[in-house]
Amino acid sequence: MFEAKLDRGIVLKKILDAINQLVNEASWECTSSGMSLQAMDTSHVSLVAVNLNGDGFSKFRCDRNMVLGMNLVNLSKILKCAGNDDKVTIKAADGDDKIKLIFEAPNEYEVSQYEIKLMNLDAEYLGIPETSYNVTVKMPAAKFQRICRDLNQIGDAVTISCTKSGVDFSATGDLGNGSVSLSQNSSFDKPEDNVTISMQEPLSQTFALKYLNQFTKATPLCSQVTLSLSPDVPLVVEYKIIEENEEDSKNEIGHIRYYLAPKIDD
C-alpha cells in the first residue's frame, strides 16, 4: 500500500507543469523515504530528476517499494481538476494497475476522486556520478528564465562563460549577437535577488536554449535556481521544491534537477 498526502496540491501541479513537456511518460519510484522520478527527453539530450522527501508530505506511507509508471500529460490533466488550496492524496494498492487521486477542498465537505491507469514502462535508469563542479551560480529563477527567453530571440544556443568578474550568457545568430553579464551581489533585505558565484577555474560552455527554456517551466517552484558547470560534463539546473503554507512559512520538500548535455565544437 502506498499513500502520500500533500496539504498544498498546487505544488504537484507546479511539478507536473515543470516536466510534462520534456517527458510525456515516466515512472515514479516510491520507497519509504519518498517519491522520485527520472526520465530523459525523447532525443536523449536532457534528463530530469525529481525528488520528493517522504517527510515533506503531511501523510506518507509506503509499505514496500513500488514503481508507478504513468502518462504525465494525463496526470497533469487530472491535477488541473484540483483546486490550488486542495489537499491532494495519491493512493496505490499493491499490484493494482491504477492509482487513485483524492482532492479535499478546504471547506472540508467536498471530496473528488480520480483514477489513472498505470503503465509498464521500459526502465532507462541512468546512474549520475557524484561530481564536484568547477562553477556554481545561484541566481533569481525569474532572471534566468528571462535571460534564456531573451537570448533565444538571437540564437538557439547560449554560451555560459564564467570568469572572476562574473558570469556571461551570450548568443549569436543571423541578426547579430547579445549578452547578459551578471556579477555577484547580495542584498540582506531581498535574499531572493542574490547572485552567488563560486568558481574554481574559469570556463565557457555552450548549451541549446530549447532545453533551457523547457527547464525554466520550474520557475514557479522556487525563487532561486542553481546552475552547476564543469568542463565536458552536463550542466545541472536545480530548483528546490518549496511548499508555501497558509501561515506563509516555506518548507523545502524536495528538488527538481535538470541535466543538459553540452554542445561541443566540431
Binding site: 535508469y125 541512468l126 549520475i128 548535455a261 561541443i264
Partner: peptide, 14 residues
C-alpha cells in the same frame, strides 16, 4: 554552433 552531445554518453545506464 557546435555539435549536440547526448546525455546518455555521460551517464551510464543502470
Amino acid at each position: 554552433k557546435g555539435a549536440q552531445t547526448r546525455i546518455d554518453t555521460f551517464f551510464k545506464m543502470m
